[in-house]
Design a protein around this nucleic acid. Sequence first.
DNA 1: GTGTAACCGATTATCGATAGTCGGTGGAGG
DNA 2: CCTCCACCGACTATCGATAATCGGTTACAC
Lengths: 234, 234
Amino acid sequence: MTPDEPAAPPAPAVTPLVTRLTLARQIRESLVVRIVSGEIQPGERLVETRIAAMYGTSQAPVREALRELEAMRMVETRPRRGTFVRHFVQQTLRESYVVRAALEETATRLAMLAGTMPLPALRAEVKAMRAAARAGDAAAAARASVAFHRHIVDAAHNELLKLSWEALQIEARTSVTMVAAEVKLKDIARDHAELLRSIEDGELETACKHARDHQWHYADLPHDAHGRARRQVS
Amino acid sequence: MTPDEPAAPPAPAVTPLVTRLTLARQIRESLVVRIVSGEIQPGERLVETRIAAMYGTSQAPVREALRELEAMRMVETRPRRGTFVRHFVQQTLRESYVVRAALEETATRLAMLAGTMPLPALRAEVKAMRAAARAGDAAAAARASVAFHRHIVDAAHNELLKLSWEALQIEARTSVTMVAAEVKLKDIARDHAELLRSIEDGELETACKHARDHQWHYADLPHDAHGRARRQVS
DNA sequence: GTGTAACCGATTATCGATAGTCGGTGGAGG
DNA sequence: CCTCCACCGACTATCGATAATCGGTTACAC
């Protein structure tokens, strides 16, 4: 059944979105922003059909997006009951730093033992952080920080470790922390420079401990972005 | 996953799976086991419609299951291309012990700092291991070992840590190791008893290091179980 | 022979419809 | 007045169908 005449798709005119990503992915991204920003409240119910209508799609892509959010621990789904925004988004944020600490300490140990630590790349990222600090570009600083730590995790050459680390959705959380904890960009650059220094010095245990403390530090910071966002509504 | 091709007649006499969980959840669990056990090969493509037919469901729940597996990083999805089992899921038996070491060392630290280490439960599991060793019951020993470590991870009271740990699918791998590395049951009981001892002594850093070394030890043993498991299917 | 374009079979992404389940509600009974 | 239970509306879980894409292949001009 092939029309030898190209039935010319003349004016679909209804697909304005430069859709190169799937709908589900786009919906997820949008929801993440709305949850993290506090626009959608903790405890709030996410009704699939309503969200579908809101985005002008069917229920299916919305469900997929919600499953992904659930995997990110941003929402909680009870079968046949519904999906709700978690209350402890900020607690989870804090927890994630402890887990990162565990994984990155080990990555540091593995990479140093194997002698695969990519020092030039690490120096470059610190440099990028300093530049971002000067420019006041928080997004750039966050990117450089994530890249710095990813270099280390990669250098460990342990795929499962990498896998577990990536599963923490570091990107998605880092920017949140920077806003929530009101971290100074200059402090970020300095902290990483210190960590790098101890790695360069080659003192294994010192560097490992430094790697761990580096993350535990963030776990201790106050994260009240959500409290703040909540307050202005209630 | 070779299509045994039962020509799937419209008689869906397919086992209605003890449905109390959603279909998607059940399918996910099933796929996890099949991937970790090596029944489904790394790099293998997971065709949605075929899996749906296999479980006697429609495509929708399968897609949801795959999205969850993707979030667990066990598979990789390229939009409009398909879903593939990641390559390193398979090779990770040895790696998993390094990651476990990282997580359990941290769990030990958290639990000891918080004073929530469940000593009686740990002692009970060691006792169970000794009994299993005497009885020559490898399965029981494996169960007790997993339970021992799970107690510690629980005691850390860090949900994300727990989640990361559970994602390693320890159960699925432990029994494999015991066969593959030909671990002596008595050694298992002894190793855990020693670890417990150092925890009881309350020396934080010593216990943490012990927790780490305990797992690194297994990483050093020869493991060819997955190779074996793979062989028997292909 | 070789390169390009239209074609094809296979499979994913999305839709619209429907069966079932859940929590709440209002009336009967205590 | 309070408790219990069938009924109701809202929503989720799942299905079957359809539109869109992808990679490979074939046809055709050079």
